[in-house]
Computed example of a mutant assay.
Amino acid sequence: MRTRPSARWRTRVDEEATEVSAGTLAASDAFLAELFPESLLAATDRALLAFESDVRVLGALDDEQVFEAIKRVVLVLNEINEAHDGAGYETGEREELCLYIDQTLTEHGIDVPALASRRGIDRTEITDDWRDW
């Protein structure tokens, strides 16, 4: 299983806090705890965990079921982003989340390029119908 983006973000926050504590980074130069507040990290982690559970039981059964799982996680991530003033996920985070969704599907036996193709879209567009972030 791939590392969730939220886990990587939490690690970066922790590393920055360690640098500030060690005196190798000025507190005024630290920004990651503000960029990734615990509320964002925890909510994102819960959303991705639920998505993983959804996909685990799906397999490659039915395109509509797979897209319903994608839709559910994207709508929850929309809510999380909105709860953080629409600034929870910037460009880099958006890309990480989309890649994570794609890779999670792939790891569970879903042929994402074929799935997307059957819908007439590119694999990079599988979240686009619902994504606000």
Rank of each mutant, 00 (worst) to 15 (best):
T124Y: 14
D129V: 09
D29C: 06
K71L: 09
I80S: 03
P5H: 09
E90F: 15
L49P: 02
L115Q: 07
L75P: 01
E19P: 01
W130F: 14
E79F: 09
L61R: 15
G92W: 10
L35Q: 10
T24Y: 07
A7Y: 00
M1P: 13
A69S: 15
H84M: 07
L41K: 03
F67R: 12
E93G: 03
L97K: 04
A69K: 10
D128F: 11
L48T: 00
A50W: 08
Q65N: 13
D63E: 07
Q103W: 13
I80H: 14
E38D: 12
L41V: 08
M1W: 08
E93D: 12
I126N: 06
E68L: 11
E90S: 07
V73L: 05
E93I: 03
L49W: 04
I110C: 03
L25I: 04
E125I: 00
R46P: 00
F51E: 07
E16I: 04
E34D: 15
S6N: 06
T124G: 04
V55Y: 09
W9N: 06
L25Y: 10
A114Y: 01
F36V: 02
E68G: 02
D14A: 14
D85Y: 12
A7H: 07
N81P: 05
L97T: 01
L25S: 11
S6T: 10
G120W: 06
L77Q: 09
I121T: 06
V13S: 08
A17E: 15
E38A: 11
E52K: 07
T106H: 05
S39M: 08
D85L: 12
L61W: 00
G120K: 07
C98M: 05
L49E: 15
A33Y: 07
T18I: 10
I121M: 08
E82F: 10
E19H: 10
C98R: 15
E34C: 08
A83K: 11
R46V: 01
E90A: 15
E64R: 14
D54T: 01
E68T: 13
R12A: 12
L48V: 09
S21K: 06
I121R: 04
R12S: 00
E52C: 06
T106E: 14
L77F: 03
L41T: 01
A114E: 14
A26M: 03
T3Q: 12
L105V: 01
E52H: 10
R94L: 02
Y100D: 14
I101F: 14
F31T: 13
E93M: 13
L40S: 04
T24M: 02
E19W: 09
E34H: 12
G120T: 04
A43D: 13
C98E: 01
I110L: 14
V55Q: 09
V57L: 08
D29N: 15
V20R: 08
G120E: 02
E82K: 13
F51L: 00
D129W: 11
